[in-house]
């Protein structure tokens, strides 16, 4: 799994946020556009692109995008 590809795929789920402002260190749940709908899109994106299942708990326990990447990578 490529970290930067993950970041790009993550950023693509947002419609109103400038992707250049989203980094691996971003605390994603503090983003203005973060919502339950975006959470469902992240879960679906991980399933579609990496064939891995993540849950609401994974999103809850990770703070930064990098931490989420690590959780996805370890599955």
């Amino acid at each position: 799994m490529d970290k930067n590809h993950f970041l790009q795929s993550f950023a693509e789920q947002f419609d109103d946020t400038d992707p250049s402002t989203i980094t691996l260190e971003t605390h994603f749940k503090e983003m203005e556009e973060w919502s339950s709908m975006v959470a469902l899109m992240i879960i679906a994106m991980v399933d579609e692109q990496y064939s891995k299942k993540i849950t609401g708990a994974d999103l809850r326990e990770a703070n930064t995008i990098e931490q989420l990447f690590e959780r996805v990578s370890s599955k």
Binding site: S36, T55, G56
Partner: peptide
């Protein structure tokens, strides 16, 4: 479904 979303939701 609870697994997918979250227990809080």
């Amino acid at each position: 479904m609870e697994d997918v979303i979250s227990a809080e939701a």
